[in-house]
Design a protein around this nucleic acid. Sequence first.
DNA 1: GAGGATAGGATTTTCGAAAATGTCGGTGCC
DNA 2: GGCACCGACATTTTCGAAAATCCTATCCTC
Lengths: 227, 227
Amino acid sequence: MKDRAETRTLAGDAYAVIHRAIRSGLLKPGQRLRFAELQALCGMSVSPVREALVRLTAEGFTVSDDHRGFSVAPLSVAELLDIVATRKLLEGEALRLSIENGDSEWEGRLLAAHHMMSRLPRERDDLPTAIREDWDLRHADFHRILISACGSPILIELCEKLFVRADRYRRLSVSVPKQDRDVVREHERIMSCAIDRNAEEAVAALKDHYQRTADAVQRLFEMQEAL
Amino acid sequence: MKDRAETRTLAGDAYAVIHRAIRSGLLKPGQRLRFAELQALCGMSVSPVREALVRLTAEGFTVSDDHRGFSVAPLSVAELLDIVATRKLLEGEALRLSIENGDSEWEGRLLAAHHMMSRLPRERDDLPTAIREDWDLRHADFHRILISACGSPILIELCEKLFVRADRYRRLSVSVPKQDRDVVREHERIMSCAIDRNAEEAVAALKDHYQRTADAVQRLFEMQEAL
DNA sequence: GAGGATAGGATTTTCGAAAATGTCGGTGCC
DNA sequence: GGCACCGACATTTTCGAAAATCCTATCCTC
């Protein structure tokens, strides 16, 4: 049961495979990407692989240097902070709008999504990959639904892109030891404020949630740097 | 002196050519894009053309339907309003940050950019293309510089993308007759508030500026619909 | 030895054709 | 008549190799 997904084109498959390889860390930040290797990884010719890289580059997962090839986009504290600051702005506003516009069907979906997530153990290093990926999926769903009623397709699209762009950093945060946070509780608070239509509190809770993740990852970076 | 720009790859040229053709209206919203035609237009083989289309699709200028080809992204009032609302949010915040962080060198660049723009006649339908394009460039520069000191590369990147995405609509607004606006004055007001470090007023002026353009285009849409 | 030119190999980029897929109209069956 | 099936054509997608470009190591000159 391979994850990569019989999309309708090989290029789509290649995109999925490489995207996953980058997010999972199989392809490391900064690593040079050679066509020969990627073709072997994806099991296809150069054209769809190149197409996938072009798409990934447009989304910031890889960088391209004309005639010199592609490489995995590097990670940095600066980018992390920038992503988080921008997400606070965008998702904060999107959540505010969702609370304004969302109907009870939205509330229901939100409750359901949170329930699905809270039934699974919180992400940890030592969990099997399958469970962690399941948690990731549900976590992503929760945040997606949170802003889904904002009424602005562009805002949703931008938030989605920043969410996946933050993913590599988020995975890092999982391996930060002894964080004094209760992630389930954080999500719960966002949700209950939202359902209470308390926009200010909900947005504050969401921003706080992001900031905590950012702080954890930043500590990790600084620890690594100290080596 | 062809505009399209001996970039370092043919795909880059193709991107520039098609991008320009879409923005100029040579390729119309919704129009089906056949490889044969684009290859003739760009004077190259299918591979670089396809790469250009993939990039354009990632940026929202074209849409792709697997195995059925690409087409120019359609225009709609809904998208226009969404773009404007999102730009108000993003550029508003970016401007606020720029005012907070910008130094006097930034002020200088802003003054210069505004001067460059105001020396050219305001865009009008009947002006030669070259002058209009020159105005476009300077106008883009002004807005770019306005937010350039915000300190957030991601915010800048997102604003830039929305700016070009708004371009097709902006061109429409030029052909709206007898608008009671003074566009030069509007820019001037934004700039002077910014230099006075009056963030609130500057942001309000910027948002107002965008809203006026949106209103003009929306009227145009409604007129066309009434036909 | 330093620095610059250069040949050879490695890699990306582009091409032209083959393969895959979609489209459209016609044919036969109910 | 309506509808599913089939086949020819149009178009996109993918392939494998050629062309273009970059990198590296070597040689030559000073």
